[in-house]
Design a protein around this nucleic acid. Structure first.
Length: 241
DNA sequence: ATAAATGTTAAGAA
DNA sequence: CTTCTTAACATTTA
């Protein structure tokens, strides 16, 4: 799950804000956190982290590749890692990593790195990008310390939109191209968010998991790239190195 | 039906 | 002290 989806999760949890937890179910480790009777204060996201705050702690939920959540509609034959029951509804979290944070969220996370935050700082991202001149652009985009929330779909789509080869080194891009890359990571994250909300995200993929380039019609190259060894989909004609 | 994939972390090796 | 490799986790889709 990428950043935009986490933002949507926050919105879907809004009806439960200020509500008290009346019952909890979950794995023993998660239950030891002691949710019972606590009031749900805020739902925020930072990158791919969902942050649910209660009076004296915050839980961080990471959905990784396969995690999911449901509201008022448990998945059949599936045991949630955490189930929070409020008087007027229940939230279920499946196959995710849950951690309890005691420190205030503002001390742990830099909102300027979060692509979905109104405080996102393009200059900071650009400067961090330029600090890695020898890195491949596909790797840098996926670096959560630089582009928090950016995942493999966004990576591939942004590189295609900008016409950059995933294995291009940062220093091989012109200054203007570097700026354009940073900017489009932000722009496309928000487009992703809108499409996802309308449930039409996949329909708009241009290169990710595609067989043919929508521009020139040639076959899409698919291979793992970079130190991160994640799949890149790209068009050799349209994405120069 | 087998495999690959919207991801991260911890542990051990080099 | 890094940096790299591997495994573990867990679910849906092609």
């Amino acid at each position: 799950m990428e950043g935009p989806s986490l933002k949507i999760a926050c919105e879907e949890l809004r009806p439960f804000l200020k509500k008290r937890i009346v019952a909890v179910r979950g794995t023993p480790k998660v239950l030891s956190i002691g949710f019972r009777g606590k009031v749900f204060r805020s739902a925020r996201s930072w990158g791919k982290h969902l942050l649910l705050t209660f009076d004296d702690f915050t839980i961080r939920i990471h959905f990784l590749m396969f995690g999911s959540y449901r509201i008022d509609d448990p998945r059949p034959n599936r045991i949630p890692k955490l189930e929070l029951r409020f008087s007027k509804g229940t939230v279920y979290f499946y196959s995710c990593a849950i951690k309890c944070l005691e420190e205030p969220v503002s001390k742990i996370y830099d909102v300027e790195k979060d692509l979905m935050s109104s405080h996102w700082n393009a200059r900071k991202a650009l400067s961090a990008l330029r600090d890695q001149p020898d890195a491949e652009v596909a790797d840098v985009l996926m670096d959560q310390e630089i582009f928090a929330g950016l995942g493999n779909i966004i990576k591939n789509e942004v590189l295609f939109r900008r016409g950059f080869h995933p294995q291009s080194r940062v220093k091989e891009l012109t200054s203007a191209q570097q700026r354009a890359l940073v900017k489009d990571a932000h722009v496309y994250s928000w487009i992703f968010y809108e499409w996802k909300k309308k449930n039409e995200l996949k329909r708009h993929w241009q290169i990710f998991r595609k067989r043919k380039c929508p521009v020139c019609g040639s076959g899409v190259k698919k291979r793992k790239t970079g130190k991160l060894d994640r799949v890149s989909h790209y068009c050799l004609g349209c994405q120069s190195k």
